[in-house]
Design a binder for these strands. Structure first.
Lengths: 258, 258
DNA sequence: TAATGAAATTGATTCAGATCAAGAACTTGT
DNA sequence: ACAAGTTCTTGATCTGAATCAATTTCATTA
């Protein structure tokens, strides 16, 4: 473990578009205090940072790179819980669960991470209400995503799951862009959506039929409403088309129509 | 909406075995303050308290009765997220998600509920660090359960899911008792475990073969280790048998053996 | 640029769990 | 205690996604 505290300056994550949720609304002092207690470290691809069943030592703030968290059973089957990119935090929820980690965390690329010690997280959450509330917002957000995942696996077809995932990415990257890039390997996304790579691949073929071009990693929408079939009550609010009548299946109109 | 503030006294939930997580560690003043801002109300069976897509107005603390939260899609398929009993809180996570509710909440029996207003929850969480940390603990716990649910649906067979559910209930109700009662209707449990009632029923038949008697709502273990097959790294820590060598499949021993 | 290996696609087959359908067991109320 | 409605169980069938298997495409490195 290389401690190079002096290397960490707030500029690291201010490089990104916006201040990460975890640090929003914190005073400069608080932020400084967090960074002083943390360490910055690089990890190679495919490194396991913590194993399911281990005691969590750190929360991981991703400066650059990709990771995933997953659970695996004795037969070697894996269920991907989250796929993470720069700006995301990981293990921050696990730390407050108490006990050992229910997930394994693994890098998917060379990754630069800020390690925030478990004990510091816990003690600082009690000291700083803003920090506690940031955590609360982040964890509830994860929980919401988990609800979606449960719902998707229980009631949605593979095509619907892929479509919903695409819709989310589309909205994330600004609905004005008609194309976006898959941020992860297809097999990783497939697992996260609870299906095999084969099924994912076949779902892509289906989705082409409703006006979505797929060119390797690049997804291109032929018209702005191509993914509206996959929208739901949670997602409409983030949709810039939602108030436009043109949307063929918008759940906002539906609720009043039906 | 009947406001009968004077009716709410801390004794209501102290009747249960232990102080509910939500109120743990709070000063008497804080607790009083919460109750003064809340209302107590009775609801009949099968009442919808909030619909998916609605703006959450309250967090629900269950004094007595049963509820469930679920998501449903346009085809009428439902995915049960949680099943709740006396002492549980609901919507406390949703309130901090922002936006509309991703879940519908429904009573499963006549139910007595303390309604804590959304706005009060949010403002009090910023005022009182202990309260924020209680929420954090509760929400992370839900999140952990959600992870299990995802994992179970992605990688476990129906029999394994039922077995794991039974193991949890067994541990909850004190591992010394060799029998316990299913707290919910079988079809509700089935849905929560991501299967049809038929599949649940067939899974019960399978489970009988490994030494679990099923007599209506009553589940009786023929030997203390009957459910150990379904244990995992998260659950061992709550298992009173875990340090006993007799456990045939304990993951704690496995990890060192393999 | 060719060679090697990994990832993705495509096809054929299998199988677990959903669905459909009927009957049994349990509740509830009169 | 009986009738009516649930809920649960059991059986038969069907179906969609997993699995198995073979290419194809793409990425990496010699």
């Amino acid at each position: 473990m290389i401690k190079n505290k002096t290397d960490i300056s707030p500029s690291i994550f201010f490089a990104g578009s916006k201040k990460p949720q975890l640090f929003q609304g914190l005073s400069e002092d608080s932020l400084q205090h967090i960074l002083e207690n943390s360490t910055l470290q690089n990890f190679p691809k495919d490194q396991i940072l913590i194993q399911q069943g281990d005691i969590p030592e750190y929360a991981y703030f991703i400066v650059s790179g990709q990771m995933r968290s997953f659970r695996s059973n004795s037969d070697g089957n894996e269920a991907t819980i989250r796929m993470l990119e720069a700006g995301d935090v990981c293990m921050e929820a696990v730390i407050f669960m108490g006990g050992t980690s229910p997930i394994t965390v693994q890098t998917l690329s060379d990754t630069r991470i800020i390690l925030i010690p478990n004990k510091f997280m816990k003690s600082f959450a009690v000291q700083d209400t803003q920090f506690a509330n940031n955590l609360l917002r982040i964890v509830t957000h994860h929980y919401k995503n988990a609800m979606h995942q449960i719902d998707a696996m229980a009631t949605k077809t593979p095509v619907q799951r892929v479509g919903y995932y695409f819709l989310q990415k589309h909205i994330e990257q600004g609905s004005d862009h008609m194309d976006f890039e898959l941020p992860f390997k297809k097999s990783t996304i497939a697992n996260h959506l609870g299906m095999t790579p084969e099924t994912f691949s076949r779902a892509l073929q289906q989705i082409k039929k409703i006006g979505v071009e797929i060119d390797g990693e690049i997804i291109r929408l032929k018209d702005a409403y191509a993914l509206c079939h996959f929208c739901d009550t949670d997602t409409v609010h983030d949709c810039t088309l939602s108030n436009k009548e043109a949307c063929p299946v918008c759940p906002m109109h539906k609720s009043t129509a039906h």
